[in-house]
Nucleic acid binder design. Structure first.
Lengths: 313, 313
DNA sequence: ATGACCGTGTGAGGAAATCGCATGATCGAG
DNA sequence: CTCGATCATGCGATTTCCTCACACGGTCAT
């Protein structure tokens, strides 16, 4: 206890626990693996307990290490609460808010929310950044952003992950898009199973949540989609569909360029993706962050009420 | 949030709040005022809020500073809990326990407790230190001791001070001692007011809790003691009384050398001093500290049951 | 089985933060 | 008004921290 501990040292352990490897944690912290190793060694010396043990060529946290991680989570949340209360005392001139999210969230949610925030308070410095879904939450933990917009489920954000403050922003269904003139386009009501025999356009496995969402939904509908083409960007997906190469799922709020000749079909058993705004635990008490979350929720409400119909492009 | 904060920096603010001056806080931390000033400045820069403002030639915490102190208390308690849980994982060989207390507590409580702990577990390194009552709690905060034995009340430990974990160890009444052969010595029952006209032997004002205890008790009994001589050490007090220079109050458990010709009289309206064992909040979950507290409580129970009678010397 | 790749841990060197001493400024007490 | 006390600030010295380079051990593929 003679030497008190920097929260950064605990953050290192937290990230090693989160990523399972020293190198990945170092990557997130913009450090070399050597520095992380030193910090962990120092932390173990201070606590007098072995925090991690070799596991193959990687490392694994000991029970003591996992216990310390739990306390570290609580400590960081407490520090965030302190920061939040202090931010209320600070003069608003220095207030800033950094948000990030996956590409389509930037277009549909972050940009409108940022515009709204700017209009409401020109003194608030709003910064928006596009991040890959897998990186957004790490940026949050590293303190490089204040709000991360992510999609619930999948590997990036497990449903039971209690490490973040989470706020639902949007629950949007996926529509099926088919080439214009496709037999399915004439139906009054469509179900996912109707497209069981069609060739599909999906993202590559693991690259994006779209893949998992589609595969799980199709398996729930009783078939396995035959993947004919791979694309991640929704504009690219709709282009492939417009050219008659297959069918695909796209979120209700994703826009399709008007020159793409596709038909958008609402599904009776449409899968939905739940978009969440995530913050570091405790930081949502900060006025700027609270306003950012409110603006995102508002943008989400606008998004679901704005579409004039399911067949819009 | 790019730079996370060392708990030491918060500790500096905590101590400045506790002592009201930078110099005193530096003294407790074994640092120069310069270092403390730098730390505070750095902390204010990191948080973006003015933490303290000049108040005469001293400094005063701003509302933001006081708010941060409250959070700092919670964070340190959380860290202590973490240390406590980790200590349970550590091998017992490195376990150590440091206790301190005021002089008579060392004799009556700490020494027996330490002996008991040593006997129960020779692997536990027990260290006892005698401290002035005013310093003991600072040593606790500075992490230089694990358990501080103090007396409730007075300036050193306000009754409502929630910054420490506290455990009652002993509530011992004060006895009146008078010179042997004094008229009061013949009575079957004595009250404080009976000694209203006697010359008193007390500690100098402010130097020790004894002064405050005696003065408040006497004023409750309806008189103001006439202080004839000053002494702090109970052996010195009893020597003065034995020489017929006055009467005094001494704790029930304080021993009087047999060569001192004094009579010890129990009082009907005896003031009591409540001896507490204090720990840093959260640290009482540490096995070694929990055992130390248990040993102190046991020593306290022994102390009240052991005396053969109030007239023992 | 062997070699290449990947990940961790260690020591040395340099950069950055921190501490202590000396100085100046400001306020309160006598 | 003078003096003592307290807090802030520059500069040199020390400690701490990060990076680089390299060794060690484990995994995978040919």
């Amino acid at each position: 206890m003679i030497e008190s501990v920097d929260l950064r040292r605990l953050q290192v352990l937290r990230l090693v626990h989160r990523h399972g490897t020293v190198t990945a944690a170092a990557d997130v912290l913009h450090l070399t693996p050597s520095a992380v190793s030193h910090q962990l060694r120092q932390l173990a010396r201070e606590t007098g307990v072995a925090l991690l043990e070799p596991d193959g060529r990687r490392v694994r946290l000991t029970p003591a290490g996992r216990a310390l991680v739990a306390h570290a989570d609580a400590l960081h949340a407490g520090w965030e609460r302190a920061r939040a209360e202090l931010a209320a005392y600070a003069d608003g001139s220095s207030a800033s808010l950094r948000m990030c999210g996956f590409p389509s969230a930037v277009a549909g949610l972050l940009a409108p929310a940022a515009a709204r925030l700017r209009a409401a308070d020109p003194g608030l410095a709003v910064h928006v950044a596009e991040e890959e879904p897998a990186d957004a939450l790490d940026r949050l933990l590293a303190g490089e952003t204040d709000i991360a917009v992510a999609v619930l489920g999948g590997a990036t954000l497990p449903l039971d992950d209690a490490k973040f403050g989470r706020r639902p922003v949007l629950a949007e269904p996926f529509d099926l898009i088919v080439p214009a003139g496709h037999p399915l386009a004439g139906r009054v009501e469509t179900a996912l199973a109707d497209a069981a025999d069609e060739p599909w356009v999906l993202a590559a496995a693991g690259s994006c949540d779209l893949y998992e969402v589609a595969v799980t939904a199709c398996s729930a509908a009783g078939f396995t989609p035959r993947v004919a083409h791979h694309a991640r960007d929704y504009t690219a997906v709709s282009a492939l569909v417009a050219c008659g190469l297959g069918v695909a799922l796209i979120p209700r709020t994703a826009t399709v360029p008007t020159r793409h000749a596709v038909a958008r079909l609402p599904l009776r058993d449409a899968p939905t993706r739940r978009v969440l705004a995530c913050v570091r635990l405790g930081s949502d008490r900060r006025p700027a962050i609270a306003r950012g979350l409110a603006a995102l929720e508002e943008a989400g409400r606008d998004l679901v009420s704005l579409p004039e119909g399911p067949d819009r492009r």
